[in-house]
Amino acid sequence: MNTTTEIIKVENLKRKFNGFTAVDSISFAVKKGEVFGFLGPNGAGKTTTINMLCTLLRPTSGQAFVACCDVAKEPNRVRKEIGIIFQDPSLDDRLTAEDNLKFHGYLYNMDHRVIEARIKDVLTLVELYDRRKDYVKKFSGGMKRRLEIARGLLHQPKLLFLDEPTLGLDPQTRAHIWEYILKMRQEHNLSIFMTTHYMQEAEVCDRVAIIDHGKIVDLDAPANLKSKYNETTLEGVFLKITGKDIRPQAGESAWTQWMRRT
């Protein structure tokens, strides 16, 4: 494989949950420094793919490499290189903002003299530095999300996973969050792998993959997709490819049921 230009390489990746195939033999690659969007209706397999790439879920078959390391064989080397902003909150609300970040820094074995300075940097970036001593319990949804972004960036990952990073936030917060992320990208040559339901947000991606029923249906730059499908917006392209029917949350519920059983 090419070790110099690709941050993610996925080959025939498959994941089944008790007979239900959530991700069905997908293959793609993400280049270093790229913002890569993963779009699809509910239950298409987006979160399952992210969970496999960030080592929380083992693939049923196929391979995935992140920063040149096999996610199934060298999970700890992969974990060092990535930052993740999960779809659902994952903060300890009985700790202060600062303590949540300190916890993260120690878990990632950062140099203790560096941690303080980095905490200041990332909290300043997301405009929460003056709230650093507050318990997360007191934070609004938008502030929690900003804190999670700060945490995901703390250990200076090469690759950032964003699973619906702006879900449920007001337009002002969404705009700010994109500002932070793109600023970070510019300053640190960060690669970004994101999923979203907001099609205008997906316009910032260099390339997007459209996934449905566990398979990649198309993959290209937003502009190329728009001209290919003769649509003026990515939303139009999305609806043309995946149809207008409302989806049951098939994949999500299979995943949740499986989590409960095991």
């Binding site: 080592t55 929380l56 700890n76 974990r79 659902d88 903060l91 993260h104 878990l107």
Partner: peptide, 14 residues
Amino acid sequence: EFGFLKEVLVAPVS
């Protein structure tokens, strides 16, 4: 249930 375990499990620690 509150998601914090994911933060721990995805960290590079044994």
